[in-house]
Simulated assay, not measured.
Amino acid sequence: MGLSRERIVAAAVALADRDSMAELSMRRIAAALNVATMSLYRHVPSRDDLVIDMIDAALGELRVPPRYRGDWRADLERCARSLWEVFQRHPWLAPSMSMTRPQPAPNALRFGEWMMGALHPTGLTVTDRMLVQLLLFGFVRGVASNLEPEAEAVRDTGLTDEEWLETQSRAFERFATQHPAPHYEQLFRLDSDFEFDLGVLFEFGLARFLDGIGVWISSRR
């Protein structure tokens, strides 16, 4: 099979998924494809161009429904969950995307357009619809930006989050003794069901975000 832009992007995505974006280089991509490094530049002008193609390829996995349900909240929730799933499959993706300098990725445009369409029945102005979809994207991206550092920590230590916390229990106890914090003591010492889990944070935050937007939309009407 000949070298192509698609093969280069697929190899880059696979390497970033496995080893993180920080470990990605044109040399490593070339090695994975068993080609000379300079041959990549005949298909991908620069690393920045490659990253945009990687973002677009990953976002191409988003499951955008063929039609709306007519319930803006249900439609936005589906969008958010689909985006969260893609970020989980590609932990490098969220930190690679910009809020204020958006990369020209066609699949990002497709996704944003679908979300704005979901909000059309609310009667919000196009500016307000844009702000809502940006804030929702920003929330999901913000939580997902922790996925890659967490995965790197697991690789570096060989410990899951729960196992690492167990190894730190005595250090945390000493810290709590030196810095009294009754609310945290209540949270962690009185049989609380709290856990440091990004999935829990995503679920809680998404529900509260949609609750707030619902109140705001009702007040505008």
Rank of each mutant, 00 (worst) to 15 (best):
A57S: 10
L187H: 10
H183L: 15
E173P: 00
T125D: 11
W164N: 06
G142I: 01
W164Y: 11
T37C: 05
Y68H: 14
R42W: 14
A176N: 07
F172E: 01
R18T: 04
E185H: 12
D193E: 12
L76Q: 12
R129L: 07
G205W: 01
L201V: 09
D211M: 08
E173T: 00
M1I: 04
E85R: 10
V9M: 03
P102V: 01
E162H: 08
A105Y: 03
L198K: 12
M130K: 11
V215A: 14
T37P: 00
R73V: 15
R27I: 02
L62C: 07
L93K: 04
R170A: 13
M54E: 11
E163I: 03
G142S: 10
A58G: 03
M1T: 09
R155N: 07
M115Q: 12
N107E: 08
P102I: 06
M115H: 01
A32Q: 12
P66L: 11
F196W: 14
D53C: 08
M38V: 12
Q88Y: 00
Q168D: 13
G214Y: 02
S39N: 12
D161P: 09
A151Y: 04
S20C: 05
L134A: 15
V132P: 07
E85N: 09
E185A: 15
R27H: 09
R208N: 10
L206D: 04
P95T: 10
W84F: 06
S39P: 03
F139Q: 14
D75R: 00
A94L: 02
Q88F: 00
L76A: 13
R69Y: 04
L136S: 13
R141D: 09
D191I: 04
A12I: 00
R28C: 13
R63P: 09
R67P: 02
A105T: 01
P182I: 06
F209K: 12
R81L: 10
T125E: 12
G212L: 05
L109H: 14
R89Y: 06
L40P: 00
R63E: 14
G2A: 14
N107C: 01
L15Q: 13
S25C: 07
Y68F: 12
F87L: 02
A57T: 11
R101F: 05
I213C: 07
W164K: 03
E23I: 01
